[in-house]
């Protein structure tokens, strides 16, 4: 197991290198001259001399490979460059937004799991009965409802009409509630359907018939056998969601002015703030490969067949 983890971590190195090269290359190819963009972002009047000077300062006259290696070296030593817009180090900007995003990710993931696993199981057990239809109908609405619309509805009712919660979250704990709910409703709806489907599939397996034929209590079949066996699928789902949540949820964060990564990168894209975007993409990649690794490790822990064969 330990060896496996080491091996997987070593495999991450070429992946990360490839992604950084690609990101850097895309930025290099992107239209517009970074030097003039940087200058215009700072409001410096542009003359050819100043541009040339800035280009040399930024190392833009060097060949691509050299530029990449310089960037990579700085990057590895924690220097992700400075934002064009406000001159703050990119690393600092990311680190400031990150806790907010993690907070929102964890809270909405927890709510989603707490809601969707029991309800999904219920729908599967009551397969094709009234409660199953009701649950499926609700989840259908939940999946179909666009996130931004739901967010606006929530703000309208709970903040404006009922006055229970603040309109603008601004990173406070109370302000966490509405964005969490907005995210969880859509996610839970998807999860409930998925949980229902995997539990149903599992319930139709022969070992369930076998356990019933042995007179094993239905409760034990469900919780100790079926639920455990569906965990592999559910964990894959969680992995995917965590990945995208930690990348920041652009729409919800923007609507609730939640100062997370999603909002940060939206602003950066608007301002063509390349260093911030680069930093963000590398972070996203890192999160995805790490989550993938954790999911793979959990497969091995959950399913004995994967490591013995």
């Amino acid at each position: 197991m330990f060896q496996y983890i080491i091996k997987r971590l070593l495999q991450l190195i070429p992946i990360m290198l490839g992604v950084t090269l690609l990101t850097f290359g895309l930025m290099y190819l992107a239209p517009g001259d970074p030097a003039s963009m940087k200058l215009s972002a700072q409001g410096v009047p542009i003359s050819q001399d100043i541009i040339e000077q800035t280009r040399i300062e930024m190392g833009l006259d060097n060949p691509f490979v050299l530029q990449y290696l310089t960037w990579l070296r700085n990057f590895l030593s924690g220097d992700m460059g400075k934002s064009y817009a406000d001159h703050l180090p990119v690393a600092e900007k990311l680190m400031r937004a990150l806790p907010k995003t993690i907070m929102l990710s964890i809270s909405s993931m927890m709510v989603t799991l707490l809601v969707s696993i029991p309800i999904g199981i219920l729908a599967a057990v009551k397969h094709n009965k009234a409660s199953d239809y009701l649950i499926r109908c609700m989840t259908f609405i939940g999946v179909a409802m666009p996130n931004f619309f739901l967010s606006l509805l929530l703000i309208y009712f709970f903040a404006l009409k009922l006055n229970w919660l603040p309109v603008l979250a601004e990173g406070s704990l109370k302000g966490l509630i509405l964005p969490t709910v907005a995210l969880s409703i859509a996610m839970s709806s998807r999860y409930i359907r998925q949980v229902r489907a995997v539990v149903l599939e599992e319930l139709n397996k022969e070992y369930v018939v076998g356990a019933r034929a042995r007179g094993v209590k239905e409760r034990i079949i469900l919780y100790k056998n079926v639920l455990y066996n569906t965990m592999v699928t559910i964990i894959t789902l969680i992995g995917l969601s965590i990945g995208s949540l930690l990348g920041g949820t652009v729409i919800v964060e923007t609507i609730f002015i939640w100062p997370g990564l999603g909002k940060l990168v939206m602003d950066a894209i608007g301002a063509r703030d390349y260093p911030v975007i680069q930093g963000f993409v590398v972070w996203m990649t890192f999160i995805y490969v790490m989550v993938n690794l954790i999911v793979d490790i959990s497969y091995r822990l959950l399913d004995p067949r994967t490591y013995s064969s």
Binding site: E206, Y207, V209, G210, A211, R212, A213, R214, G215, V216, K224, N225, Y228, N229, L302, D303, P304, R305
Partner: peptide, 20 residues
């Protein structure tokens, strides 16, 4: 079932939970 009536199925192992 189980106490007075027992069953043996055709497919060996299929009546056993593969992950337990």
């Amino acid at each position: 079932r189980g106490t007075r009536l027992g069953v043996i199925f055709q497919n060996p192992g299929a009546s056993l939970n593969p992950l337990r």
